[in-house]
Structures are given as structure tokens and as C-alpha cells.
């Protein structure tokens, strides 16, 4: 039982990092990235392959982050100069393409059977053996990511990102090169998604294309919509609620062929409901109060 709890907590930590990543791109900057699962998958596969080729754990992790960022660069250059809608469909298509590469480039990725025997994490010569040790490591990474993001969003850079979301033309009018800001948002966000993927790969040990379906992107979307777009604390709380809630649904006792789509319907309706009736989420984004001048 404790092993299951530890497993779920590790998944919560990894998904929370993923939520923070999407919250930067979509929640804060307003970029509709439907390819989150493929950046996550690229990080997982790259890091796993590097580690299998003999790279040290931290170097493999870094490799996963960099590959995800390179893909984000490739996708962003043609699409970010256009309005958000294009990015949405292109990233949605990217999700399918990367999965198709994972599936069909058998020599490299192992095809639909996936990659096995991914080396376990080790830090400075110390191997993380138990689940407990990995949980601590994952939570430390989550905390670092969280504070990094809070610093970033509190800075002038973060303010420009929110300005882009609210009114891109106004941001341009005051002289901001919004393309550059959107590009950085995509690069940092995708890098963090890659990091989450790498953490997942080294924890779980076996990855296959089925781990990186669009449903995952959708699940994280639901989390940040509920947690409050642009609010990372809300995203972490919502991650805990939804990962545990999803696990709870598993014990209802329906066969998998019914329960999986049923879960999809339930979460889908929940997302429609949240978008219409709860547009600011459970915990709304903190807004800075500005005192009126001369009051």
C-alpha cells in the first residue's frame, strides 16, 4: 500500500512540473499548446536514450530538456508570428507525428514495445534505489521549478507575457517584441515539459508511445483550467486532486474498456463546465493591485 502511495506521489510531482510548464505557455502567455505530450515524450525518449548510451544521469536529463527546446524552436518559428489558432493545430499535429516517430523508428525507439531497462537515477555517484528516495528527488525538482517560475513570472519578463495574453497588440504598441517573448515562453515551457518527461522515464524504467498520447495533454489542460490559469499553486493543488481522483475512479470496478472512455467523458464534461462557469479556476491568478493616482 505505501508503495502505491509513493508511486502516486511521484506521479503527482511529475505532473505538477508538467502543469507548471503548460501554465507558463497557456495560462500565462495564452499560447494554446496541444502538443505538450510530445515535448514530454521527447524529453523522456532523449534522456532515456542518452542514459542507455552511457551518459551520466544529470547530463541525460539536460539532454532531454535541450531536445524538447529544439523541437519547440522548430515549431515556434513558423507559427508564433501568426495568431494562436495556428499554433494549436500545428502542435496538435506534432503530437501525432512524434508518436508516429516513436512507433515507427524501431531501431532507435524500440517501436510500440518501447524502450526498456532505462538506467535508474543517480546523483553524484549515489544511486536512487527506493521509491522514497526518488520521491524526494522529484519533489525537490518540483520545488526548484516552482520557485524558478515564480521568480520568472514576478519579473518584468513575466509581466510582458501576461500583457501578451491580455492584448498582444497593446504590448506591441508599447514597443515590446512580442514574438521574442512568446518564443521564450514556448522554449522555457517545453524545456520544463522535457524535464518532466525525463523524470518519468528514469523513474518508470520502461516507456512506450502509449505513454505520450494527446489524452495526457488534455488531462494537464483540465488541471490548469481548474487550478486557475496562470496560478502555479492552484495548478499543484489541482494536480493532487485530479491524479488522486483519477486513481479513485479506477476502483469503481468497471472493466477497463468502459472505465477509460467513461473517465474521458467525465473529464471532458468537467472541462466544458469549468471553461464556461469557472473561467478563473479554483484559485484565481493573483493580480497586482494598483493604487489610483491622486486618491
Amino acid at each position: 500500500m505505501t508503495e502505491i502511495v509513493l508511486h502516486l506521489l511521484i506521479i503527482v510531482a511529475i505532473y505538477a512540473i508538467l502543469s507548471i510548464s503548460l501554465n507558463l505557455m497557456t495560462g500565462t502567455t495564452g499560447l494554446f499548446n496541444l502538443g505538450l505530450a510530445s515535448f514530454y515524450g521527447l524529453g523522456a525518449y532523449s534522456s532515456a536514450l542518452l542514459a542507455k548510451a552511457g551518459a551520466p544521469f544529470l547530463a541525460a536529463l539536460l539532454g532531454g530538456i535541450i531536445i524538447s527546446m529544439l523541437m519547440a524552436l522548430l515549431i515556434s518559428l513558423p507559427t508564433l508570428q501568426l495568431v494562436g489558432d495556428y499554433l494549436a493545430v500545428v502542435t496538435m499535429g506534432l503530437g501525432e507525428i512524434t508518436r508516429s516517430v516513436f512507433k515507427n523508428w524501431v531501431d532507435l525507439t524500440g517501436g510500440f514495445m518501447g524502450l526498456r531497462n532505462i538506467p535508474k537515477a543517480s546523483l553524484f555517484g549515489y544511486q536512487l534505489q527506493s521509491r522514497m528516495e526518488y520521491l524526494i528527488f522529484a519533489v525537490v525538482v518540483l520545488i526548484l521549478t516552482y520557485f524558478f517560475m515564480e521568480r520568472l513570472l514576478g519579473s518584468p519578463f513575466g509581466r510582458v507575457l501576461r500583457a501578451v495574453r491580455e492584448d498582444e497588440m497593446a504590448a506591441q504598441a508599447i514597443g515590446k517584441n512580442t514574438f521574442k517573448f512568446k518564443l521564450w515562453s514556448m522554449l522555457i515551457g517545453s524545456g520544463i515539459a522535457g524535464l518532466a518527461g525525463a523524470l518519468f522515464a528514469h523513474y518508470i524504467g520502461v516507456i512506450s508511445p502509449a505513454d505520450f498520447v494527446m489524452w495526457l495533454t488534455f488531462f494537464i489542460f483540465l488541471i490548469i483550467m481548474f487550478g486557475g490559469l496562470g496560478n502555479n499553486l492552484g495548478a499543484i493543488v489541482a494536480t493532487i486532486l485530479f491524479v488522486l481522483g483519477r486513481e479513485g475512479l479506477r476502483f469503481v470496478g468497471l472493466p477497463a474498456s468502459i472505465s477509460a472512455p467513461l473517465q474521458q467523458i467525465l473529464f471532458g464534461l468537467l472541462l466544458i463546465f469549468a471553461t464556461i462557469y469557472l473561467p478563473k479556476g479554483l484559485i484565481p491568478e493573483r493580480t497586482q493591485r494598483v493604487k489610483p493616482v491622486g486618491d
Binding site: 496541444l34 489524452w215 488534455f218 489542460f221 474521458q264 467523458i265 473529464f267 471532458g268 464534461l269 472541462l271 466544458i272 471553461t275 464556461i276
Partner: peptide
């Protein structure tokens, strides 16, 4: 919501 509808 459109993405959600497609999943449903």
C-alpha cells in the same frame, strides 16, 4: 471546450 467536446 472544442477539444473537450472531441474527447467526449
Amino acid at each position: 471546450t472544442a477539444v473537450a467536446v472531441s474527447f467526449v
